[in-house]
Write a protein that binds this DNA or RNA. Sequence first.
RNA 1: AGGGGCAUAGUUCAAGGGUAGAAUAGCGGUCUCCAAAACCGUUGAUGGGCGUUCGAAUCGCUCUGCCCCUG
Length: 288
Amino acid sequence: MHNQKELTIILGPTGVGKTDYSLELAKEYGSPIINCDSRQLFTEMRIGTAPPSPEQLACVKHYFIFSNSVQEFYTAGRYELEALALLQELFKEHDRLVMVGGSGMYIDALCNGLDDFPQADQQLRACLMKRLEQEGLENLRSQLKLIDNKSYQTIDIANPQRVVRALEVTLQTGRKFSDWKSVPKKVRPFEIKKIGLIRNRAELYNRINKRVDLMMADGLLEEVRSVLPYRNMPALKTVGYKELFDYIDGLTNLETAVDLIKRNSRRYAKRQLTYWGRDEEIRWYDQF
RNA sequence: AGGGGCAUAGUUCAAGGGUAGAAUAGCGGUCUCCAAAACCGUUGAUGGGCGUUCGAAUCGCUCUGCCCCUG
């Protein structure tokens, strides 16, 4: 076996304790840490995304933390390419690397690859979103049925985001969305080990609730105010930010907004667990 | 202690004696680049006992618990 390179990915629901775990493992391996959290990427979001502390960042070299701006359109596809390139570079000097984060789709993109769709055309997407608003979902569905019936049959047509995406790819490329999706998993030139962290549900929820209070004490509201101009960017469709935008708009009071952040964080954690539930490659470790 | 009120899902609130509903929380699921996103589905209750009635969440008695008022 000439290939001894190994990537260890630490994943798990928000608030489970991934950051601390990753630092210990990285120290043991002498590895830097590659982030695979789709929100800790953004330099303007330093409180609401629970990134590593400045001390932790000083302790181990981190990649993909505060590396991008919320003004950019960042996607799982872009992450796949950039993270893969970085790994190739780092594996020249390391045999074992540590990756940590909670974005299931980003992890899948890195491990298995996405099909090579062209980059999304923001104008086309905006146009489709406008049609969605004006004509309604049913119209877009009908069109999808016409130009790519197989996608119509297989995707979740109750989900506007999916319908728009399938139409977008088909219209943009002249090739059916469903035809793009036939490629098998990509093979990566390194071994991948997935470590899942888990803990008792009630305790996890407690940790999440407390962490939200800490974020508020640390000035989350000010941070949210500072990114207000970019609130329509995908990066800011994020738990902790959405709810405080509503508060700033006067739609809720602060207490309600904070409660909603807690609830939505709990739900997010649950969805993460569901997402990973059928990934048999993950070895789960209960945290105490 | 005396007087009054209340008791329905984890919570907040419905149901003029006739199929106990809703909101919310909770739970479960979907997933090929907006993924901390966007969707889909779902469990669960009349405080205990006795009575009236063909039939009780609803009327009566009683017990328990909570709240208010008065010494």
